[in-house]
């Protein structure tokens, strides 16, 4: 309905990630890591699983950001019921995301509006409404155990372990083959 649509975009809508994932599952490609801010759905459907969501997925954290830091920032939107840090599947160290659960849906929406896109530990973090944490989701789903977005990332990101892990691994392999292979053109690895 036109009349209901606000004259400015709302920041407390779920990103395209959730709706896309429900439409078409592609287990080989984790779109969570994509940058898809193209949400244009006017109103979520009535049976929207996110309509009472109290949990947020928080992304683009530094691997070094602690639970306490997340608490300090996210408590500004309401008391936190539960915090689950995202861990590397293999070595159980933080891998740059977490789930924050509030007591109320409103707190979660406020967090989308006021904290998503601001900085924590000097990184712009991303928040997305989430239907709720389930056991197993705390682990990275990339081949190397971390998040998929950290596999083929070409930029050097100190807070997230430097270059993409797959790229690092490929480089290591090549370095092993050619001891003088310093000029590795990692840009071609896609």
């Amino acid at each position: 309905m036109r009349g209901l649509r606000s004259t400015v975009e709302r920041l407390d809508r779920p990103s395209a990630y959730f709706s896309n994932r429900n439409k078409r599952r592609r287990p080989d490609k984790d779109q969570r890591d994509g940058d898809e801010d193209t949400n244009m759905q006017p109103e979520p459907p009535a049976d929207d699983p996110l309509k009472d969501a109290t949990t947020l997925y928080v992304g683009n954290l530094s691997f070094y950001t602690t639970e306490e830091q997340v608490y300090e920032l996210f408590s500004k939107c309401g008391e936190i019921k539960r915090l689950v840090m995202g861990l590397d599947r293999f070595n159980k160290t933080p891998c740059g995301f977490c789930f924050v659960e509030y007591y109320t849906h409103q707190d979660a929406l406020d967090c989308m509006k006021y904290i998503g896109g601001t900085k924590l530990d000097e990184r712009i973090i991303r928040t997305d409404l989430d239907p709720g944490f389930e056991e197993g989701r705390q682990y990275g789903r990339g081949k190397s155990g971390g998040q998929v977005r950290d596999e083929y990332r070409e930029d050097y990101d100190e807070g997230r372990g430097g270059l993409g892990r797959a790229i690092q691994q490929a480089e290591r392999l090549r370095e092993a083959e050619r001891p003088d292979g310093r000029e590795a053109d990692y840009g071609r690895l896609r």
Partner: peptide, 12 residues
Amino acid sequence: EHKLVYYHSVLT
């Protein structure tokens, strides 16, 4: 009217 953090975010 709103949570204080909203006004923080506006200034940011």
